[in-house]
Each structure stands twice: as C-alpha cells, then as structure tokens.
Design a protein around this nucleic acid. Structure first.
Length: 434
RNA sequence: GGAGGGGUGCCAGAGCGGACGAAUGGAACGGUCUUGAAAACCGUCGAGCCUUCGGGUUCCGCGGGUUCGAAUCCCGCCCCCUCCGCCA
C-alpha cells in the first residue's frame, strides 16, 4: 500500500500517478478525509487516556496514604473519563480500519519510467532476440497440443478426466523435459557450483489470508485464487506470495541486502475471467509450474538493479533453450496493481503463431513491503525503513514448454532437446518421433 | 486428535493489579584507560502513531473482558515444547 504520510504531503503527485494507470481516485479522497478525522479523534483519545492514567495514579497514591474516602471519590471522575475514552477509541479504531481497508485497495503509483498508455496495446517492445516470427519452417508451425498428443507427452484428456478443464498432464518425455527445465533454472541461480548467490526456497503452497494480502493478491482479487474454506487457507497463485511474506513483520539487517530468493512451486489460478479462453494445450491452466526469482532491496536504486538482474537471468534461460523472445515495457495502464514497473518476456511459439508471456519481472517499490511490513535497519543507526521488493518468473513453464516443443520440432516429427538440458535427460538429444 | 508445560526487549531471563516500556546478565554501539588489543570502568542501547517538537500515546503471542488502574486476574484463539495417538 501507499505511504499514508506521502498521500498527505503530496496528494496531487499521487493523484497524477494513479490517473496514469486509470485508477479510481475516489478511494484516495476517502482516505484523505478519513485520515483527517482519525487524527483529530486520535488526539482526543490520547489526551483522555493521559487524564485517566494521571487520575488513576493519584488514586493509587491516595490509597497508599490511607485517604480512602478521597480515593473513592475520585474513582467516579476516572470512570467517567474512561468511559468517554472508550467510546472515542472505538470510533478511532473504526476509522483506522476504514483507512487501511481503502489503502489496501489503492494500487501502486507507476514509476515515471513506465510508458504512458491505457492497455496492453500501448506496451512498448524494448527489444527482440532470436529469429523473427516469419523465419520459421512449416515443420515448426505445428501447435504444441498436436505435438504433445502425437508424441504422447502431453495428455490433456486424462487431465480433464481427473481434474476438469484447464488442467494439464505431462507424461514420459514431457514430464522429464519439464523437470529438466525446472532443474536448469534452479541450478542456474542457486547452485553454488555456478557461483550462484540466490538462495533456493521450497515454500508452502497453502498460505494464510494475511500472506495473500501482503503481495496485493487480496482483498481485490479473491475470485482469482482458490480458497480452502475449512482451514481458511489459500493456494498460492505464484511463489511471489510466500517469498514476499517470508520477511513479514521483520526488520532486516541492512548488511544482508539485497536478499535473493528463488523458488519452484506449483501455482494455482482460477482464471475466473478467462473461461473458454486458451483452453487447448498449455497456454492457460488452473495449475502450473513456475520458478520465481524474488528479492528484497534497501531502496529504488538497489531494487532496480536487482530487477535488471532478474530480467537478465530469465533472458539467459530462454537463450539457453534457443527460443526467440521479446521484452515488453508495460504501460501504466497495463501494470498489475502492486507494480511500479514491469517488463514482460514473451517467447515466440511458431506453432500457435503467438508471442507467449512466459515471465513478468516487476519492481514494486515499497508497496508490497509496506503491506507485509518488511523493513530494514542499518546496525548502529536509529530508525527503520521500508524495503523494496522485486520479482520475476524464470520461467512460467507450460508456455515455455510450448514454445520449446514448437521451435525445436524437426521435419521428422521429433523434438530436439537443447544442449543444456541433455545432461539432465540421460544425454538424449531428441524426444523421439512417434 | 488427547494430556501437560510455555510464549516478556537483539538474546537469556525476572516481574505481590498501582513505583513497569519493563529488574538483571549477555550481545551491540560510543567513550575513558592502553603503543595496540583484551580486561576494567562510564554512557547509549526496541518499534509504531500523533505532535503546538515541550511532549503525548500504543505495543509484554493475538483478540475480548473485569477494574479508577492490567505484563500481572478472567474468557476465547494462535504458536512453540514434551508425551500419547495417527500418518507420507
């Protein structure tokens, strides 16, 4: 969420920023108004509490001095003050809750560097890597769902049978390929033998409501997540959720920043608004695998450097796999609610003839960290500061698998395995043709 | 799931309902001493909110209650530990 003090001190700048993403400004005005009232009531409550404490202390002293009658007499006064205090305190608490409620629903202010624009049509292509869309041969222009069925490595039908539509299943070479790809990504970032400095995490995939609030996935998007009602737990839509809340309510030592985490998890999305879209193949599923890179930083400079590092890592993986991709700079209007700046990576899938979003690399400034209450402090110095968070996928696997199968399909129907993955697949160079 | 024990500051660990934001010890930081270091000694040493910058206020797992007054009493919940049960 946004810093309330900043909303107070520079409301116009925030209004302008939020307008760039087309956000509703009514909540902002509401916060401003509630805050003014809350502070007035709060001051009064503090004052009354002070009086109650003072009188109570005096009563205690009177008792000790043996002046019982005098003490009893003053109880009434304290009681009256106390009752009034309780009344006002309840009002103050209500106001505070309302403020937080509104604050949680106000999106982040886009970075000045994020391009103007209202929708995905206005996103800016920063660069493209690898052969372009029209350079692919006919044997590569087969959709991955056909390749998957032909080679027996993706079994959509069985997945539908056991779980319903928009679930997928990998089999045989498909499952092994997926596992190899995940392993490659994880080892690239977390294996000390590669000089890796990212700590690998295997977090829980079921989390509490507060954890979902921390990253901004609640309260606004409850329809997008699966909720296990009986235990009031949510299935994570991305490892970003548990990773960002790992340091919730903690004060990190400045020396340890930036903190770098990578994690592989299943991700669950109800895809509430997407019923009927992309139901074939691997483009959109309720459950999918993803490797995430996530970091905590001490401020904008460090955070943006880390965001660039994550982007570079993700790009490297696509290069390792020999895939064509492009980098998009999301415009203010297409930014996720928590993000200040986002770069999407889209891999080209010649079979479906589309650029597929396989990664989203975002800088959240202090928006998430303030929600999750993650701060840092320099040893020996006074005061704490709110961290910045960044994260990005490396990668969202189903679409990466799709792009890989299509890109590396050979004229004979087999699929060439990228060299970096071969050691993980027993040295195999191809997924054999049917 | 059952029985018992416990949750206090960076850590350890006290705390008859009024003197407690909290003893004491350790760590850390600053200083004195020293050629330097250690030791010793002195001092500092949690976070949030509001502020007319004097200060005020909140927080002793979380929430509620009793009371003029709660870290201390009562109720509910959560978490941790031990034992039993169940289990990949």
């Amino acid at each position: 969420m946004l810093d309330l003090r900043r909303i107070r001190s520079e409301p116009d700048a925030i209004r302008a920023g939020l307008s760039r993403r087309g956000a509703d400004l009514a909540l902002l005005d509401r916060v401003l108004e509630l805050d003014e009232r809350a502070r007035a009531v709060g001051a009064e409550v503090d004052d009354l509490r002070n009086q109650v404490k003072t009188v109570s202390k005096e009563i205690g002293e009177l008792f000790k001095a043996g002046q019982r009658d005098e003490a009893e007499a003053r109880k009434a006064e304290s009681k009256r003050l106390g009752d009034r205090e309780k009344e006002l305190a309840a009002a103050a608490d209500g106001l505070q809750a309302d403020i937080r409620d509104a604050l949680l629903r106000i999106p982040n202010v886009p970075s000045d560097d994020a391009p103007d624009g209202a929708s995905e049509a206005d996103n800016v292509v920063l660069r493209t890597h690898g052969p372009g869309p029209d350079t692919f041969a006919d044997h590569q222009r087969v959709p991955h769902w056909d390749i998957g069925t032909e080679l027996g490595i993706i079994d959509g039908e069985r997945a539908v049978k056991i779980s319903g539509s928009m679930f997928t299943m990998y089999r045989g070479w498909g499952a092994r390929l997926l596992r190899a790809m995940i392993g490659h990504s994880l080892d690239a970032s977390a294996d000390p033998a590669n000089g890796a400095v990212w700590e690998e995490i295997r977090p829980p995939t079921l989390v509490k409501t507060d954890t979902m609030i921390g990253t901004g996935h609640l309260p606004k998007f409850e329809d997008e997540a699966y909720h296990v009602e009986r235990d009031d737990l949510w299935t994570i839509p991305t490892a970003e959720v548990p990773l960002t809340s790992m340091a919730a309510d903690e004060v990190l030592d400045w020396d340890t920043l930036p903190v770098r985490f990578t994690a592989y998890t299943s991700c669950f999305r109800r895809e509430a608004g997407a019923a009927g879209r992309d139901t074939r193949g691997l483009l959109r599923s309720h459950e999918f695998d993803k490797v995430e890179l996530m970091g905590y930083a001490d401020g904008a400079e460090q955070a943006i450097a880390l965001q660039e590092e994550i982007l570079a890592r993700s790009e490297q993986i696509l290069q390792d796999f020999g895939l064509s991709y492009r980098i998009l700079d999301l415009c203010a209007g297409d930014l996720g609610g928590s993000a200040a700046r986002t770069w999407d990576i889209e891999a080209y899938a010649p079979g479906v003839g589309e650029w597929l979003e396989v990664s989203s690399v975002s800088w959240f400034a202090d928006y998430q960290a303030r929600r999750a209450n993650v701060r840092w402090k320099r040893a020996g110095e006074k005061g704490t500061q709110v961290c910045h968070t960044v994260n990005g996928s490396a990668m969202g696997w189903p679409r990466t698998v799709a792009a890989l199968l299509e890109t590396h399909r050979q004229p004979d129907g087999s699929v060439a395995i990228p060299e970096v993955l071969q050691p993980r697949l027993g040295g195999a160079t191809h997924i054999p043709a049917a």
